[in-house]
Design a protein around this nucleic acid. Structure first.
Lengths: 188, 188
DNA sequence: ATCAGCATGTAAGGCGTTACATGATTCA
DNA sequence: TGAATCATGTAACGCCTTACATGCTGAT
């Protein structure tokens, strides 16, 4: 039997699910979607305009999202998108699929791994640069956490909270590693 | 003034540096390189044959690597590569560059974030699937750690050790999060 | 007047995966 | 004899980023 052809998504384009997920919560423009992704989501997923706008167009053709209204009141056109029934179904199907790919690319770790070619001070500096970034991000995550704790009863917010907790837990682990690694680099 | 054109690498192709880094330690074939990447490195970087072989060809043209000897003794041709002086220079230049991109894509977190559309049990299951994977990987990392501790004095091995410690630290953090998250999903 | 932010979109091009093609060796 | 492993490489294709193109609004 053939695979259903209506509302079928691109095989490996996860940006579709991100957009669908955001639209399941509220109607948004492409520009708004970009802003949401750049918020707390950016710690575990990224997206650019160059992927968001084409994805929205294609998903509209597939009937996964609908244009709500093209507000042309005054300024530039503004296209608000709304998720459709089949869009929600696609999102649910993805949520129910156990398999998930967690793809990590730490250039910092690569530089640590291959650092033996240079002096220890180089690896040490690369770790310190990483540490600095992590500390900044951790502050931001703690700020998100405090804000979310005030509105935990609202729809979906417990889920957002969990991802922030994930960020904090891993970023604290990063910092512990930085300290260990610096110590080992200095002592050993 | 123009940028130096000899031995210049592709701008964003980090696989070149991975290969160069591995070759700085020992001469290898493309096949061997793949095996090394699939080992402890796979926790923070990945690579396929389809990217390794073309990268080796291009880097040979650029003079970053050299063919050591085409062993045709018996079976299929076997091309052993060796890093060149300019290859080592390129690698060192990269190590000395403070900027590093750590690009994370956790589909598990995406499913957690958007899980509000479905029953709590779905999110719970997705977390449990993640937890299971993490536990398996953590075992493997601990095995790597024990083996490395025996040969810590050998060249470069402290650096490998540090990346394994990173893996252990973060994977333990993942497990702590899994427990917290499961608890919150059940209680809240 | 000018700059940042709002807002949508396209074009070029790079990177990387999957699948395929080919073929030898070793071991059960 | 058949499967797994060794070994190299190409082709198709998809995804995504960067840069560009365009133009309005509001604040300084």
């Amino acid at each position: 039997m053939d695979v259903e052809k209506v509302g079928r998504m691109a095989k490996d384009r996860k940006i579709d699910l991100v957009i669908l997920g955001l639209l399941a919560h509220e109607n948004l423009t492409g520009y708004d979607i970009k802003k949401r992704i750049d918020g707390a989501i950016s710690f575990f997923w990224k997206g650019s305009f160059g992927s968001i706008y084409p994805a929205l167009s294609e998903m509209e053709k597939q009937g996964l999202v609908k244009r709500k209204n093209s507000n042309k009141t005054g300024g530039r056109e503004k296209i608000v998108y709304q998720i459709s029934k089949s869009g929600k179904d696609a999102l649910k199907q993805w949520l129910n699929d156990e398999q998930a790919t967690n793809d990590l690319k730490y250039e910092t770790l690569l530089k640590t791994y291959f650092g033996g070619l240079e002096d220890r001070s180089i690896t040490l500096r690369n770790i310190e640069v990483f540490e600095k970034q992590v500390k900044g991000n951790l502050e931001l995550l703690n700020f998100y956490k405090e804000n979310l704790e005030k509105v935990l009863e609202e729809a979906d917010h417990v889920h957002y909270y969990l991802t922030v907790l994930f960020g904090i837990e891993t970023y604290e682990a990063y910092l512990r590693w930085c300290n260990k690694a610096k110590k080992i680099m200095k002592e050993h």
